[in-house]
Simulated assay, not measured.
Amino acid sequence: MKELKLFAYLAETLGDTITLQLPPTFDKEQILQVAAAAYPLMKAEIMTCNVAVDQEFAAITDTFVREEVGEIALIPPVSGG
């Protein structure tokens, strides 16, 4: 099990953190897919999020080992004005 930090409207809707069962190794897409499967009503919003692992944005090609990861965050898109 791994705890994910949430921000913006995800945190307002689901709380500051969620706990998910991630595989032993995973990538950005798998994090989003597992989160979307756990919260299907928020799937569209989750799938547009950026993912930060240990306070660095995850690239689509990055692979992570669950036991080596300290923090995962889902960061919804933001707009400025």
Rank of each mutant, 00 (worst) to 15 (best):
M1V: 13
M1H: 11
K2F: 12
K2P: 08
E3Y: 02
E3W: 01
L4S: 11
K5D: 09
L6V: 11
L6I: 07
F7N: 06
A8V: 09
A8L: 06
A8H: 09
L10Q: 06
A11Q: 15
A11W: 00
E12I: 08
E12P: 05
T13E: 15
T13S: 15
T13A: 15
L14W: 07
L14S: 04
L14G: 02
L14H: 01
L14D: 01
L14F: 07
L14C: 03
L14I: 08
G15P: 01
D16E: 14
D16V: 03
D16N: 13
T17A: 03
I18D: 03
T19V: 15
L20G: 06
L20E: 06
Q21S: 14
Q21N: 14
Q21G: 04
L22V: 10
L22H: 10
P24C: 02
T25F: 12
T25W: 02
F26M: 02
D27R: 09
D27A: 12
D27F: 07
D27T: 06
D27K: 10
E29N: 13
E29G: 07
E29Q: 14
Q30M: 14
Q30L: 13
I31Q: 01
I31N: 01
I31L: 01
L32M: 03
L32S: 04
L32A: 06
Q33Y: 03
Q33W: 02
Q33C: 02
Q33G: 07
Q33L: 13
Q33N: 15
V34W: 04
A36R: 04
A36K: 05
A38I: 03
Y39D: 08
P40M: 01
P40F: 01
P40Y: 00
P40V: 00
L41C: 02
M42F: 10
M42Y: 10
M42K: 09
K43D: 09
K43I: 04
K43G: 01
E45A: 15
E45T: 12
E45L: 12
E45F: 05
I46C: 10
I46R: 07
I46T: 11
I46G: 10
M47D: 08
M47S: 05
M47I: 12
M47K: 11
T48A: 10
T48H: 12
C49K: 03
N50V: 01
N50T: 05
N50A: 15
A52I: 02
A52V: 06
A52R: 09
A52L: 15
V53F: 00
D54Q: 00
Q55K: 11
Q55A: 09
E56W: 04
E56F: 06
F57W: 13
A58D: 08
A58P: 07
A58N: 05
A58G: 07
A58H: 05
A59M: 11
A59Q: 14
I60L: 08
T61R: 10
T61K: 12
D62G: 09
T63A: 03
T63D: 01
T63F: 00
F64R: 08
F64Y: 15
F64V: 13
V65T: 15
V65N: 12
E67R: 10
E67N: 13
E67A: 14
E67M: 01
E68P: 00
E68A: 08
E71T: 14
E71M: 11
E71S: 13
E71W: 04
E71Q: 14
I72H: 08
I72K: 06
L74Q: 04
L74I: 05
I75Y: 10
I75C: 11
P77G: 12
V78W: 05
V78Q: 06
V78R: 04
S79Y: 07
G81R: 04
G81S: 02
G81K: 02
